[in-house]
Amino acid sequence: MTSREKILAAVQANQPDLTALPDLSGFDGQAFGSLAQFAEVLTAVGGKIFHVANYAAIIKIILAQYGSGVRIVTQLEELKKLTRDNLESLSQIHDLHDVEVAIIAARFGVAENGAVWITEEEMQHRVVPFIAQHLAVIIHEDAIVPTMHQAYDRIANTTYNFGTFIAGPSKTADIEQSLVIGAHGPRSMTVFVLKNS
């Protein structure tokens, strides 16, 4: 008997009688959902938020914050002038070790926890939003769902190989519960909320 067979047989023999799954339709998220709440929670978890009218405004803020001398990566056509990298043709992901800023489009944000959902498609390489010293994310102002229940409703009809919710900069409180921003991932997270044109 293989371990697989042994485990499955033991589970089958020992598991209790079938019980029903709960109905989750009551979690309709009406208590949440606004962009204002998203901004408030994101700020509370250490993120920054900018409401912008267009990509030109984003470029201006990025250049003001980081200058033009640092390595910036982005896949976004509208921001191409900020980067000298072509992520699609990058052969060795370890070469990303000195990226200062990564700018990525997110699919949507979640009001209750300030998280944004990003998949491998927007990242190009999975390590990008983690290895950069600073992360900037762009979402559209109407792409805010109230809670994680609506977040998964929204994800349900999409496909991805890898996806992640990111809520703020990398952090730790492992030393005496003192909050330190910038553990292993980005030292800051900026969310640009793009107005509908």
Partner: peptide, 10 residues
């Protein structure tokens, strides 16, 4: 409200 990263490996 949530961990900084909730990564879904598919």
């Amino acid at each position: 409200p949530i961990t900084t990263y909730s990564s879904h490996f598919k």
